[in-house]
Structures are given as C-alpha cells and as structure tokens.
Design a protein around this nucleic acid. Structure first.
Lengths: 346, 346
DNA sequence: TTGTAGGCGTTATCAG
DNA sequence: CTGATAACGCCTACAA
C-alpha cells in the first residue's frame, strides 16, 4: 500500500505537506503543490479513508437504519428504494458513504449501540414505529446528542429531527376526490396507529368527510397492516353497495392494501372503477401496474430521503446539533381509472 | 469517549489484557476476564470500530455496488431489496457491515477506486452488464486480487466469483409450460444481451421450442429493456393470433415487461389468460398484484445475495482469495392464471 | 497467563 | 509557506 510517506519522499517534501495538499489547507506554493500531486499520481497514491476517519474521529458514514423483517413484507420495496436513492443522491455530494443497518425489532431497542462503535456519524431511521420502547431509545439518542433523523414518522410531543410528508393533506385530497366524483359512502382502510402517518391519514379522511357533511359510520373504518394480504382480507369485513347498504368507495392507506382489496373484490365480481371507487396511497409502481390503474397519492419519498440526509450531513459537518428540524413535504393526487366514474364499462 | 485505557486502569490490568478479553485471544484466567468485563460494563465501554479497522487494516465492511440511475427504473426495487436482504442476513452473522455504493455508469468504470480508500474489504456487485469497459474494470480488480462477487451476471471466458440463477432452466420451464398448455406460437420478449441472463433465457427458450419441434419465427423475438414501459411498447411490434396469424403466447424476461405488455394488450381487448398465454420472470410482488395474476419464474434472489456475501466474507476472513467460485441456483415455475387455458371466461 | 512497546496512516498543533 | 511531532485507540509480536 502506498502511503503518504512515500509520496513525501518522492516529492521531496514533508509528510505534513502532502496532507496539506490533499486537504487544501493553508496557503502553499503552487509549485510544491504540483510536485506533490505529480508524485501522488506517479505512485497511484490514495489516502487511506480508515486512517483519516481514525485521526479525524469521524467515520464519514451515514447510517441508514431499516427494519429487518425477512419474509415479512410490511413495507414495500418501492418505499425504501426511493428513500435510499434520495439519500444516495445527497450523500455523493458530500463524500460520505452509506452504511446500511438492518435491525430486528429487538436490536432497535438500543439505537445508541450503532454509534458507540463509531462507524457512523449520524443516522437516518426508516420505518420506525411509535412505541414506548422506541420513544425511550430515541430519547436516549437525543440526550447523548447523537444526531439522527426520522423519515415519514412523527413522534408527538418530542422534538426529534423529522422529514415527513403531509399525510393529512394527502388523505384529504384522496377523499375529497372521491367525494367530487360523487361517491358518498367511503370506507377507509388504514394501517396501524403506531405509524404517525396512519393517524394523519385518519385526520385527513375525517376532515374531508366532515366538510362534505358526510358522517362517518364506524363500520367504514377498517385496519390492515400495510401488506397486500391484509388488504385482501379486509374485503371480507367490507359490505359493498351493489350487494346491499354498503360503501361505494374505499380509500386505502397504501397501494399494496388497495390492490389486495381490489383483488379480493374482483373475485366477488366487484370491479374497481366500475362498481366501486378506489384510491390508494404512495403512488408506487404497483399503482401503475394494477388493473385498472390505481388512483393514488404521490408521496415524495426520494426527496424525503434527500432532505433527511442533507439535514444530517449539515449537522455533522458543522458538528453543532443546533436546533432540531421538522420538515413536511406536500403530497399530490394522481388520478387514474380506479376512481373515475363511468370510465370503465364492462 | 471511554477507551481501553480506562477499562484497563479500573480493572487493574494492562491494556493488552483488555484487548485479549474482548477478542477472546489466548488463554487467560477466568477471574481476570471477569474483572475486565465488569469494568467494561461499569464504564459502558465499547471498542472503537474505526480504531480496530485501522489497526487490523480491515474495514469490516462489505461493499454492495448498485447502479445509480435515478428516475430510471430498469431494475425493479423488488430485485434489489431481495438481494440486499440476503446479504444483510449473512452479514449480521459475521459482524460485518454493509456499505452501499451507488455508482453511475462512469464511476463503475473504475471499481478499484472503491477499495483504494480501504473502506471495504470486498464487494458484491449487482446489476452489472457485460460491456468491454466493465470487463476491463473487473479484470483489473482481479489482477489486484481485490475480492468481489457478481450476482446474477456471468462473464463468459473470465473466471470471476459469481452467484447466478439457472436462467436457461427457468426459461425452459416457462416455455415448456406454455407448450404443455397447448400454446404453439410463443413469442419471447427478452432484455438486452449485455445481461448474461438474457442470453441464458434465449437458450432456454430455444431449447424448449426445439424439443417441441416448434420452429421459432424471427418476428417472435422481441427486445425490451426490462422496464414496464418497454414491455408496453413491445405490444405494438407483436401480432396476436385473434387478429391474424400472430402468436398465442408470450414469455417475457421479467415481470415488469410482462405486465407492461399485458396492459398494452388489454387496451386492445386482448386479455392474458383468456386470449393469450403469458409468463413473466422473477416472481416479484408485481406478479401477484397483476390481473390476472402472472405465471412467473421464481428466482432465489434472497439466497443469491446471501451466498455471494458468504463467499466474500469467507475469502476476507481467510484472507486467501483461493480459487474462484461459480454458483448457480435453480429456479422454479410458479403457475398462476395468466398462462392457463380456459381459466378465465370473459 | 500477563505486560511492554512498536506500529497502523492520518490530522493537527506548534515552531520556524 | 513548510517541517517536526504528538496524538488517535487498538492489535500483536515478543518478553517476562
């Protein structure tokens, strides 16, 4: 391995000077600089990142925490891959790297552990839930001034760094759209309230229904776990209009549940976009793949990942935690055939 | 930060002894060990991973290389998330971490760069293509004895570490199934030949057709780029039987193209599973979500990631490159409605 | 079974 | 503008 020492010798300067050149520190003679650069190129020298991390006491790594649930697909791959890409985009501009940490539920009881080994300078935490243990664990992080940022999750009453989407608005848009299309009896298939975005969506749903003077009947509120299967199963708890006094539309809290529901209904001869209005959420690939294509709420996951990473990198580089930030990005309604009356004939 | 020194002092031993306890090296008195452990716990000591890496000249990181194509979705999120999970599963057993590296096409011209900074000990490379530049870059890696493993990609004539699936077999199973269902004029929507698995699938297709004495007509061979859109567009280059002397079935090289094709055909009133037999590949989420559900070829991506990581970790730990390995895992046919005759009535 | 001491490749401080 | 030199926290012969 080529080290600084050899470059220094070849260039006829001290090791310190080599470092100065590579870190662009202090004033230096242009000629010296060129000599060092030339020597470095000749030897194919590259600074050892580990040694740098060691000396700087900074890893240059941003930890990305994902829930590790092999064979359990509560989160869609789309969701994570968008956020990861956003983080990646931000990171490359800062010369940081991304350390992926897949944590089982037990492991995520102790986030501080991740920092203790000093392999990451900050973390972006994805897929976290609001449970007492998580709250405790995250509060410990904050007390120890370890920088972290949550994505798509809000902890009420606590002052964490968060990048969220405006799910109240998104949900409102969805339900509002269904109402505009003339649907009245609109069920809401939500996810667990341990995710703040579930609670937010409930608010948006209630707001839209309230504004339309459309009282919500308790049997219209269903809960799944964000998996396709749970959407499929929810169909059995749902009475749809044609077959009686049921609902004529459904807003589902993500696309996967919406599609599961759609599949189950189809097996009963009920077709989204013809017999029932259906809106999903996330505007994932799946929404475009489904038949009929699924109206959905676009959530800017890519941008959310990017902003979260940005916030963390800034904190690390200024090495001042500073005041915490809460960012909330807008969502958008994307209309497709599953929710439009009269678009689909047979 | 608590260091080894403080633990040593509190336990009344030398620093070396603390290291020995934490690395379980050499024989030691049980009592000494306990004393050290107790002191460590009292101080909440955790070894500094960066310092360890520095001293051991090993990062303890496995690099995972992904193509960085923001906003271009040639690869499905499913594909990567399965492989990543597999790698993650393997890695946690070895105490390694995963460094995610998103590389633009230009950056992947020089893989060696990734190792130079010493942030990774080995790499698993995903989504690579067989181009002259890639070959060159990978060969350089090999010459420098930098350990790496390709997943789902084979470089003919070169002796790289590879974990692949048996795509010849998968494709054979798919076409064989269509033939068994009574389809005869079977088109093949393939991806770019820069991916070895595309070439493999062509072989499987030809083999099955050949065995059935079913000569392949050139207009049955279509090419897309693995995106849904390209599948959609391929429909315009396809003549389907009901409307003349066209094909009565299609095997697509991945699910996304299959579904894009399915969508385009449906717009023309041609329904998979009723008017045409359709088989995809990957058995991704999308196959289950589509309507009708898509018959597909299961590819063990999770296991492939796991095996690739395993191979790399073993090489790193033995620190002997040894002989290279080529692993090829079997695929499976998963039959759903899109390919079964007479299942769908209207 | 345990201690001593040199080294890993940088950064960063302090003289000059 | 540049050169010494002390950290940084740990690993690992070698000695005892």
């Amino acid at each position: 391995m080529i080290t600084r020492k050899e470059v220094a010798k070849l260039a006829g300067v001290s090791e310190a000077t080599v470092s100065r050149v590579f870190n662009a520190i202090g004033p230096m003679k242009e000629e010296t600089k060129q000599r060092v650069l030339l020597a470095a190129k000749e030897l194919n020298y590259h600074p050892n990142a580990i040694a740098q991390s060691f000396a700087r006491r900074r890893s240059g790594n941003l930890g990305v925490v994902l829930p590790y649930l092999p064979k359990v697909h509560l989160f869609s791959a789309y969701y994570f891959s968008e956020i990861l890409s956003g983080i990646g985009e931000q990171i490359r501009q800062h010369g940081f790297d991304m350390l992926l940490m897949l944590l089982t539920p037990e492991e995520s009881m102790d986030y501080a552990r991740l920092y203790r080994s000093k392999k990451v300078d900050a973390c972006v935490i994805l897929g976290s839930k609001d449970t007492p243990e998580q709250r405790r664990s995250l509060q410990q992080l904050q007390e120890q001034k370890l920088p972290f940022c949550l994505v798509n999750q809000h902890f009420e009453g606590l002052d964490f760094n968060e990048v969220d989407a405006d799910h109240v608005q998104g949900s409102y848009l969805a339900v509002r759209h269904l109402l505009d299309e003339g649907y009245r009896d609109i069920a809401f298939l939500n996810g667990s309230a341990e995710y703040s975005n579930s609670k937010d969506r409930l608010k948006g749903y209630q707001k839209a229904m309230g504004e339309a003077d459309n009282p919500v009947r308790p049997e219209w509120l269903l809960e799944g776990n964000y998996s396709r299967k749970s959407g499929y199963e929810a169909a059995s708890r749902l009475i749809v209009k044609p077959s009686g006094a049921g609902v004529d539309a459904v807003f589902a809290a993500n696309d996967r549940m919406a599609i599961g529901l759609q599949q189950a209904l189809r097996e009963r001869g009920i077709k989204a976009g013809r017999d029932i209005g259906l809106v999903g959420c996330d505007d994932s690939d799946a929404a475009k793949l489904s038949d009929p294509p699924l109206t959905s709420i676009y959530v800017p996951f890519f941008e959310m990942g990017k902003r979260a990473a940005q916030g963390m990198l800034e904190q690390v580089e200024k090495s001042t935690p500073g005041s915490s930030f809460q960012i909330k990005l807008p969502t958008q309604l994307v209309v497709r055939k599953s929710s439009i009356r009269g678009e689909i004939q047979q």
